[in-house]
Nucleic acid binder design. Structure first.
Lengths: 109, 109
DNA sequence: CTGATTTGTTCTACACTATAGAACATTCTA
DNA sequence: TAGAATGTTCTATAGTGTAGAACAAATCAG
C-alpha cells in the first residue's frame, strides 16, 4: 500500500505546478534539473509523469502545432486538484519530519 | 545512477538520528509511524535500514542481552557521518524545491 | 517539393526499491 | 522446561527509477 508521492514524483509535480501553463517534457526536464542541480534523462521525466497522469495528479493535452521553428506538438501538462492535495500532504509530512533539524544539527557535529 | 535518498530512506534515517542511542527496529518503527501517522510493517523498516547500512549511512551492533523482560538482543543503529552528510544534502534539496510553496499556494485555490 | 534540421514524445528494458507478513531466534519467568 | 515476551531475519512480489534509442512531426533551405 503506497504511502505518498515518491521523491521523483514530488519534484516533477512541483515543477509542473511551478511552470503553470508552460509545462511540457522539455521545460519540465529543465526545471527539475535546475531545482536539483542534477542531470535528468528524458525517461526519468516522462515515465513518472505518465504514472502521475494515470493516478490523476496531472492531466495533459496536445498544443496546437504553432511553433517558432520546427518541432513536434507539445504535450502540455497541468496539475489537477488531486495533485495539489497530494502536494499539500507531502509538504506537511516534510515539515513534520524535518522539524527542528537545522538547529539541532549543530549538536551532532 | 541514484540521485539521493528515497523517501523511506530519508524518514528512517531521520528517525535513527532523532533516536540517538536508542534506535533499533521496534523504536524506529514506532518513530516513523509517529512521524508519518501511518502504519509501517516491520519489513518496511528493516529492509531499507539494511540498505542504508550497506551504503554506509548507518552502522549497527548488537546490544548486551540485558533486558527488562525476555526478548532477543537489540540491534542498535547509529547514523554515520556519511549519513548526516546525506541528510544535509536532501534537506537542502527539499528547501529549494519547496521554497515559497505555502504562500504561493493560496493563489492556486 | 523534398531532404536536412529542429523540437519534442514514445518505447523499452532492467536493476533497484517498497512493502507485507510469516518464520525464526533469544531471553526471561513460572 | 514450556510459554510468553521481545526482537530480527527472510522472502516474495508489485511497482519505481533511470537511461537512452527510436520515432514523429513541423519548418526551413535550396
Amino acid at each position: 500500500m503506497k504511502k505518498y508521492l515518491s521523491r521523483p514524483e514530488e519534484i516533477i509535480l512541483l515543477a509542473v505546478w511551478r511552470l503553470k501553463d508552460n509545462a511540457y517534457g522539455v521545460t519540465i526536464k529543465k526545471k527539475v534539473e535546475k531545482m536539483t542541480e542534477k542531470y535528468w534523462s528524458i525517461g526519468a521525466v516522462y515515465v513518472p509523469l505518465e504514472r502521475l497522469e494515470k493516478k490523476g495528479f496531472v492531466r495533459s493535452c496536445l498544443s496546437k502545432p504553432k511553433s517558432e521553428r520546427g518541432g513536434r506538438r507539445k504535450r502540455l501538462f497541468t496539475i489537477t486538484s488531486a495533485g495539489i492535495y497530494e502536494l499539500n500532504k507531502i509538504h506537511k509530512v516534510n515539515e513534520v519530519i524535518w522539524q527542528g533539524y537545522s538547529t539541532d544539527k549543530k549538536e551532532t557535529w
